[in-house]
Simulated scan of single mutants.
Amino acid sequence: MIIGVPREIKDQESRVGVTPAGVKALSEAGHKVLVETNAGAQSGFPDAEYQDAGAEIVGDAGHVWGKSEIVVKVKEPIESEYVYFREGLTLFTYLHLAPLPVLTQKLLDAKVIGIAYETVRDRNNTLPLLTPMSEVAGRMSVQVGASYLEKEKGGRGILLGGVPGVPPAHVTVIGGGVVGTNAARIALGFGAKVTLVDLNLNRLREIDDIFNGRVYTLASNSYNLAQATHEADLVIGGVLIPGATAPKIVTREMVSRMKKGAVIVDVAIDQGGCVETARPTSHSNPSYTVDGVVHYCVTNMPGAVPHTSTLGLTNATFPYLQRLANLGPKEALKQDAGLAEGLNTYLGKLTYRGVAESLQKEWTPYATAVA
Rank of each mutant, 00 (worst) to 15 (best):
M133D: 10
L130A: 11
I174G: 06
E150D: 14
P128N: 13
I115L: 04
V112H: 06
A116I: 05
P168I: 02
G157L: 12
Y94N: 00
G157F: 09
L160M: 15
Y84T: 11
Y84Q: 09
G145A: 10
Q105F: 05
V166C: 13
M140P: 05
G88E: 01
V163W: 10
G88K: 05
G155S: 05
L107N: 07
G175V: 05
Y84G: 03
K106Q: 14
Y117K: 04
G114S: 14
V166D: 09
V120G: 12
L149I: 09
R156W: 02
M140K: 01
L159F: 04
L129H: 06
L89S: 02
P167C: 02
F85D: 07
P167I: 13
P168M: 13
Y94M: 05
M140W: 01
P128E: 13
K111Y: 02
A110F: 02
G161Y: 03
V144M: 11
G88P: 07
P128R: 13
L100W: 00
D122A: 01
L129A: 01
I158L: 14
V83G: 00
T90I: 01
L91M: 07
Y148G: 10
E152P: 03
L130G: 03
P164G: 02
I158H: 01
D122W: 06
A110E: 03
L108G: 00
A137L: 07
V166L: 15
E150K: 15
M133E: 08
L108I: 15
G157P: 05
G155C: 03
S147M: 02
Q105I: 08
P128C: 12
G88S: 03
S147F: 00
E118Q: 04
H170G: 06
D122E: 06
A137D: 07
G154S: 12
L149Y: 03
A110V: 00
A169R: 13
R123L: 04
S134Y: 01
R123I: 00
S141F: 15
L130V: 08
N125L: 10
K106Y: 00
E87M: 04
A110M: 06
R86W: 05
L103Q: 03
I115R: 03
E135S: 15
R86N: 03
V171Q: 09
V102Q: 10
T172K: 10
V173C: 05
T126N: 14
G88M: 02
L130S: 11
L89Y: 01
R86P: 03
R121D: 02
R123K: 12
D109P: 06
P167F: 14
A137G: 06
V136N: 11
R86G: 02
V144R: 05
E152K: 12
P128W: 13
E135G: 07
T131F: 07
V120T: 07
T93W: 06
E152D: 08
E118S: 07
